[in-house]
């Protein structure tokens, strides 16, 4: 999961335009000079590779054949490929379950931490955030060990209840197992963002509400929640992009899953597997672009929907 957001798509543009108008008296070239070093890196390590990948996606090559230009045939194939579509369905369903869950955990934690100011609360705040500092690869490895019925603690815990440990990476539980890893890894980060937003609220608002007879719950729901809505939207977009591109955790856990996490479990895994294990670089590029398209459309629809709903940002 690469949780770097594009919430900006909409919110920054109008403001930035206003600023730009104000500064238009500057020589035109100066701004470019400041942007140039980054632009160079952006060009070399993003635009060029991307263009090259797109170029590749327009060709076909079989193991026993030469390379031929095939236009958009790879894309047509992708959108009728049951493995790609199956992976896509999984990440969509996964997002629908994961994101509300993560939001709930991080929002609840942030709201509690915003009202309680004991030492325990300060300690908790840091500890909840700790998983963010752990590389996703290592986090997934660790959970893989913990999920192992024989190697991890599960057998012991279940023995207390005279039951045998479930195989959490079996076909019935793998969804929940992955849900848990991602929630564990990212909730703390989201919690901190919401918490920082909560801390930015003028506390005199709470005083006023209390005088009006509002209790903690009402303050949380009526005042805090609307005021941190923009942070929530930011997180949602982060999470949506990251989850649709779900890759690291299932990839790391796949070897421990006895075949349940297939090489085409998520679209990104499918692309990776096609490219690296099966030498289908052209088709893999098309899958990546097809996924990028789905992500783009998904995020756009989401932003459009939240914008209509009473402009929470």
């Amino acid at each position: 999961m690469t949780g770097i957001g594009s919430y900006a798509v909409r919110s920054s543009a109008p403001r930035a335009r206003a600023t730009a108008r104000g500064r238009s008296v500057r020589p035109k070239i100066t701004g470019w000079l400041f942007v140039a070093p980054f632009a160079l890196v952006f060009l070399v390590f993003l635009v060029v590779p991307l263009a090259y990948a797109f170029w590749l996606s327009l060709f076909s090559k079989g193991l026993a054949t030469g390379t031929t230009f095939s236009g958009l045939a790879n894309y047509v194939k992708a959108f009728s490929d049951p493995e790609f579509l199956g992976g896509l369905l999984f990440v969509v369903v996964f997002s629908v379950v994961l994101i509300p869950l993560q939001m709930l955990v991080s929002l609840a934690a942030a709201l509690v931490l915003d009202t309680v100011t004991t030492k325990l609360a300060r300690f908790s705040r840091l500890m909840i955030f700790v998983p963010y500092a752990i590389p996703a690869v290592i986090g997934a490895l660790m959970w893989g060990f913990l999920y192992s019925p024989g190697f991890g603690p599960l057998a012991q815990v279940f023995a207390l209840f005279h039951a045998s440990a479930p195989n959490l990476l079996g076909s019935h539980d793998v969804f929940g197992a992955l849900l848990n890893v991602v929630t564990w890894q990212w909730s703390g980060y989201y919690m901190i963002i919401i918490y920082a937003a909560l801390q930015g609220i003028d506390s005199s608002l709470y005083e006023a509400a209390r005088i009006d007879g509002a209790n903690q719950w009402q303050i949380a729901l009526r005042i805090k929640l609307p005021l941190v809505a923009s942070a929530l939207v930011l997180i949602l977009v982060f999470a949506l992009i990251g989850t649709l591109q779900f890759f690291t955790e299932p990839q790391v856990l796949a070897p421990s899953s006895n075949g349940v996490i297939t090489p085409s479990f998520t679209p990104n895994m499918y692309a990776y597997n096609l490219a690296f294990a099966n030498s289908q670089i052209n088709y893999a590029s098309a899958i990546s672009f097809a996924l990028g398209l789905v992500v783009f459309v998904g995020v756009y629809i989401f932003l459009f929907a939240t914008r209509k709903k009473g402009r929470i940002v």
């Binding site: 192992s148 019925p149 070897p255």
Partner: peptide, 18 residues
């Protein structure tokens, strides 16, 4: 049993006489 062999689980099952 049907434990996957590329996991630590299988090794622990071998170790514990399962």
């Amino acid at each position: 049993i049907t434990t996957g062999q590329s996991s630590t689980d299988f090794v622990s099952e071998l170790a514990s006489g399962k």
